[in-house]
């Protein structure tokens, strides 16, 4: 998947490509990820999450709440 023509950046990506790397050498000290990387992970995480949060609430939920309200009203 890594593009060889990309030069050094591509080659390094290639190194990082395997899905399930088990070794934790390098960036990790005592099992903790350094602050810079942690910040980047947090940023991506929020971006992925906000993608969904930003979507308008589907009509089915508005209809559902309406229905629930009606049923509660008739019961009480």
């Amino acid at each position: 998947m890594a593009d060889e023509s990309q030069g050094s950046g591509g080659a390094r990506r290639d190194k990082a490509e395997p899905k399930m790397r088990q070794d934790t050498g390098g960036k990790v000290e005592g099992g903790k990820v350094d602050g810079r990387i942690q910040g980047e992970i947090g940023k991506q995480l929020r971006a992925v999450y906000e993608d969904v949060v930003k979507e308008p609430v589907p009509d089915r939920f508005l209809e559902l709440l309406k229905k629930l309200e009606e049923s509660t009203g008739s019961k009480n």
Binding site: R12, R13, A16, K19, Q22, G26, V28, V33, R36, I41
Partner: peptide, 15 residues
């Protein structure tokens, strides 16, 4: 976080 760092190859050098 550690796992993501591994999976994404975010370790110091390439990063």
């Amino acid at each position: 976080r550690t796992r993501l760092t591994d999976l994404l190859g975010l370790e110091g050098e390439s990063y």
